[in-house]
């Protein structure tokens, strides 16, 4: 679990490498691809942000990795390599042994993610029972220790609480306890703080970051909140309509966004628009059945040309740790967006 300093998004130290992943959904309108050729790398001990609007395929991405796709969904193409093991082809039993143990998931809504009829201590203990060979007392002690580490007050009493007796913040702490108790190599956090209010959000993020540092866990943080990304992430992948449109080191991305979509997201941050009206990106994410032919962002892009609408741009390297899927060659203005404000 030693810390390795790497600045490049592409490194030999990757815990997980996703390559050209296409996740399909069988629907009445035919086969749709909410995740359409996504490649990303999660280096060891880093927090990776996966950012995008609702409906751009972020959660489908997480569910593909966790094997939690809906009944009509499946991974159609590509590979998910976890510590050298190909997840898309390995057996159900092997994946089950990894889930909750080496790869864990924190869900978006702590209010609905805990089983309402089981005591929360037991729900966390379930993970230990499945993956670790502990006696009953040891398991209980470990859970209570984890609750203490997570800053849950009166952990012995909370162990016996039912989810409805806990606040949203406490429930999310319980969820994180369950996700972290086996000291996983990769934690996927799917909008872990979206359902919480901001003060609780800050506490939870801090706690997650501390734990992540201590354990050297890699984190894939899925969020639509660039503020959260700026606070905790090392690297950022921006996702739009099922594709990665920009990938960069977090500083690089905030200071030199190359994709108009990233620029739009940054411009809609309140902190970057002090004293000015917030600017939103016009339009919405295209629905899966009506994907534009060329660049998927073209219909909403202020710089789009005819060429953009005809051919899909490829991902290209624009810096040491910076890739973008856009034909535009000039550096977009990010610092408050003066140039086109």
């Amino acid at each position: 679990m030693e810390e390795k300093k790497t600045t490049e998004p592409v490194s030999e130290q990757a815990v997980m490498t996703v390559k050209d992943l296409r996740t399909a959904l069988k629907t009445r309108q035919g086969i749709l691809y909410p995740v359409d050729g996504v490649s990303l790398e999660i280096p060891k001990g880093k927090i990776i942000g996966l950012v995008g609007e609702s409906g751009c395929g972020k959660s489908m991405m997480a569910n593909s990795i966790m094997n939690l796709l809906p009944k009509n969904g499946y991974v159609a193409e590509g590979s998910i390599l976890f510590q050298g093991k190909e997840l898309t082809t390995c057996s159900k039993e092997e994946r089950r042994k990894l889930s909750g143990n080496r790869i864990t998931l924190i869900f978006q809504d702590p209010m609905t993610s805990l089983n309402p009829v089981i005591r929360v201590g037991k729900q966390v203990e379930e993970v230990l029972k499945l993956h670790k060979n502990l006696s009953k007392e040891e398991a209980k002690k470990t859970v209570i220790q984890m609750f203490t580490d997570m800053g849950i007050p009166e952990p012995e009493r909370r162990y016996y609480s039912f989810p409805h007796e806990l606040s949203g913040g406490l429930r999310q702490r319980v969820m994180i306890s369950a996700a972290m108790i086996c000291r996983p190599d990769l934690l996927i956090a799917d909008e872990p703080t979206t359902a919480l209010d901001v003060t609780i959000e800050a506490q939870i993020l801090k706690k997650m970051k501390t734990l992540q540092k201590e354990e050297g866990t890699s984190v894939l943080l899925i969020t639509h909140d660039l503020g959260v990304v700026a606070e905790v992430c090392d690297l950022v992948y921006v996702m739009y309509a099922g594709k990665i449109v920009e990938a960069a080191d977090v500083r690089e991305l905030f200071h030199h966004p190359r994709h108009p979509y990233t620029e739009g997201l940054l411009n809609s941050l309140p902190s970057r628009n002090r004293g000015r009206r917030l600017r939103s990106i016009p339009g919405v994410v295209p629905i899966l059945t009506e994907m534009p032919e060329g660049c998927r962002f073209a219909p909403r892009c202020p710089y789009a040309t005819d060429a953009c609408r005809q051919k899909q741009p490829e991902m290209r390297q624009v810096g040491d740790s910076h890739q973008v899927r856009c034909v535009l060659d000039r550096e977009l203005i990010s610092e408050g967006g003066e140039a086109n404000g």
Partner: peptide, 23 residues
């Protein structure tokens, strides 16, 4: 969601049915 949570924990399908869903 909590059924997905149980799956994400790596619980066996049979136990998910009896321990989580049926309850």
């Amino acid at each position: 969601d909590y059924i997905n949570f149980a799956k994400a924990k790596g619980q066996k399908s049979s136990r998910i049915i009896t321990g989580h869903e049926l309850r």
